[in-house]
Design a protein around this nucleic acid. Structure first.
Length: 634
DNA sequence: GATGTCACG
DNA sequence: ACGTACGTGACATCA
């Protein structure tokens, strides 16, 4: 047995690490004496816990509020067996506390120890989820933050060691980078052992503080439980991952590389050395006689896609406007940047994220945004280009299966109608009307034009986002007078929208600048951006519609088909014969009533690849394996 | 690390 | 009194 300590609150807390198999009995004896939930953490070789390597975990730590035990499972079978036994004892006993448990440690330990993921989660509380329900903001946004260090500072001891940051410093002193430090640091390095134990001591102490705070703030236990369910469901999707078409992706990466090289060579002939330097691009364009008038927030000359597109005589989708002679530099810069981004952020990123089975496992952060919205990283598959099928084509349904996408229909508008009780909006939805046309008709009369519908749509979004007439004018290009008239008419038609916004702001002022969502979620407002309250309410409630839908899907036995949540959409894979039924079943889980407003969904069944859903029907047979084999051109 | 840009809902 | 477009992740460049 080796003994270490972790300094906290002016004391030295014991950290014990069994060194020989016979030491493990002491650990199990200690564990069986615990009457409170035990914190569990793991140290791994890096962040790729789902790489498919079952030996990716080096050590599993267990801690009470007073004492920590580190079990170095890399030392062999008996150590792994002790960790496995201990986890089962906690699952069937006092329970587990973990920080980022659902998305990191539980998946890692599931792979490492073979314990079913659901069992690891069923008697566990994730302190990261709890902390986001107290305050969803990052430190940079003025919040408490959700990492162990800022939470420990706030709730336990501001002088607590920065276990992650200090360890990184140790790596550097050993000549290691952060990327390899966790893998190569000696198991018995005293800081590694001390801080490994420190993490579970801190987590064990954090849980009662957070649970108490949630009670004091009146956050419903129902919401806490719901978030743990949502995180577990998304954890399953993360573990399963997405199947990548490796051959296609490699070919695509090569093609994009060639396109980037070709276009960059053209850009160079105009004296621009760095494609990513807006300053150089702007300088060259001005040198060609173009006038660039727009400025960025930082005061620099703006040279983004909208500026370049105008010079290239194109709209934002790349269609010719036939208004002027295209500037050849602007054309080449647009093409080169697009190819470069698509290669590095997408194709290359997919290939470097591959696991041993040809799958990628994007990290699903179920409560990342300050509205509770999810985000997806490594790679960011929620943000793949939707105007072109090529990138999404990289992802495949399982062999013999088809890709399914089910999305909510205009969910944010419907949520707004429901939350604010907007009478005429609710009527239009019940009648099955297109809401933007409905608004256009009320505002501009029965002879409204497509242009009027466009303005109405922009106002519909603009109001939810807190925008004003100027922004809508910029968006639509319509005359300012017409936009102002339409905004005024919008508020006359739907007076409840402004009334609800005022009420939410008033309530926030009397509640520490926090507006509470319909599910009881705390949404802190920025003092100088209180107009964002409508968006926070709507975006957050829409996020909870998705979360509830995911829970409905699990209850309906659909979890094995689910692959990815995308804000108002769910991606799934199902055997070709059942795909239509599965799509309808998922759609049913995304259909419910919200304060008298129907929330509805639209299932779509594609072919073998995700990209097939983004192809015109007549191109599907040429570009998608399933459609080609099915002999269906349309 | 800040800034600008570009991809999504 | 007036007006404010919301939420993300990733990459390249530059200080």
């Amino acid at each position: 047995m080796r003994h270490y300590t972790f300094p906290l609150l002016g004391r030295e807390f014991p950290v014990s690490t069994p060194e020989r198999p016979e030491d493990l009995a002491h650990f199990i004896a200690w564990l069986s004496r615990q009457t409170q939930p035990v914190a569990v953490d793991s140290e791994t070789h890096g962040l790729d816990i789902l790489s498919g390597d079952p030996e990716y975990v080096r050590m599993v730590q267990f801690g009470s509020q007073e004492e920590a035990w580190n079990i170095p499972t890399e030392l062999g079978m008996s150590f792994k067996e002790a960790a496995r036994t201990a986890l089962w004892m906690l699952i069937d006993g006092v329970g587990i506390t973990g920080h980022n448990w659902a998305a990191f440690d539980a998946p890692a330990l599931h792979v490492h120890l073979g314990i079913p993921y659901d069992d690891l989660c069923k008697n566990a509380v994730d302190t990261m989820l709890c902390s986001k329900l107290v305050d969803p903001r990052a430190v940079q946004e003025g919040g408490i933050g959700s990492s162990l260090k800022p939470l420990s500072d706030h709730y336990i001891d501001p002088t607590a060691a920065d276990t992650q940051g200090d360890l990184t410093a140790v790596f550097r002193s050993l000549g290691l980078t952060k990327a390899v430090g966790f893998s190569r640091i000696d198991l018995w390095h005293p800081i590694y052992q001390s801080y490994g134990g420190g993490d579970v001591l801190l987590t064990a102490r954090l849980r009662p503080k957070l649970e108490n705070k949630l009670r004091l703030l009146g956050v419903p236990q129902r919401l806490v439980d719901y978030e743990h369910e949502v995180a577990r469901i998304c954890g399953h999707m993360q573990i399963r991952g997405l199947l990548l078409d490796q051959d296609y992706t490699r070919r695509l990466a090569d093609e994009l590389g060639e396109e980037e090289a070709t276009q960059t060579a053209i850009v160079r002939t105009y004296g621009v050395e760095k494609l990513g330097s807006p300053a150089q691009i702007a300088e060259a364009l001005i040198g060609m006689g173009e006038s660039l008038t727009e400025r960025t927030a930082g005061g620099a000359v703006k040279a983004d896609k909208s500026v370049l597109s105008a010079l290239a005589d194109m709209d934002l989708y790349g269609n010719r406007l036939h208004v002027r002679t295209p500037n050849p530099l602007a054309v080449a810069v647009i093409k080169a940047k697009r190819a470069g981004k698509w290669k590095s952020a997408y194709a290359d990123n997919f290939l470097t994220s591959l696991d041993r089975n040809g799958r990628i496992h994007p990290g699903i952060r179920t409560m990342q945004a300050r509205t509770g919205r999810m985000s997806v990283t490594n790679p960011a598959v929620q943000t793949l280009p939707s105007g072109d099928w090529k990138i999404r084509r990289c992802f495949l349904a399982e062999p013999g299966e088809r890709i399914i996408s089910v999305d909510f229909q205009a969910v944010e508008l419907r949520v707004l109608a429901a939350l604010a009780g907007v009478k005429r909006m609710k009527e239009a939805i019940s009648l099955g009307r297109d809401l933007h046309s409905f608004t256009a008709e009320l505002v501009f009369g029965p002879d409204f034009t497509p242009k009027h519908r466009k303005i109405s749509k922009a106002i519909g979004f603009g109001v939810v986002y807190g925008g004003g007439a100027a922004t809508i004018q910029r968006q639509t290009g319509a005359p300012m007078e017409e936009v102002k008239r339409a905004v005024a008419a919008y508020h006359r038609t739907y007076p409840e929208v402004r009334r609800a916004a005022n009420r939410w702001q008033r309530e926030a002022f009397s509640n520490g600048m926090v507006t509470t969502s319909v599910t009881g979620r705390r949404l802190p407002l920025d003092r100088d951006r209180t107009y964002a309250v409508t968006n926070y309410q709507v975006q957050s409630a829409a996020r909870d519609c998705l979360g509830q839908a995911l829970i409905n899907m699990e209850e309906a036995g659909l979890l094995p088909y689910l692959r990815l949540p995308v804000h108002d959409e769910v991606i799934a894979s199902a055997p070709a014969r059942e795909a239509d039924d599965i799509g309808r079943a998922i759609g049913k889980c995304m259909t419910f009533d919200l304060f008298g407003v129907p929330i509805e969904s639209d299932p779509e069944v594609g072919g073998r690849s995700w990209g097939s859903l983004y192809l015109p029907d007549d191109q599907r047979a040429a570009h998608d394996e399933w459609y080609a084999n099915a002999g269906l051109a349309t």
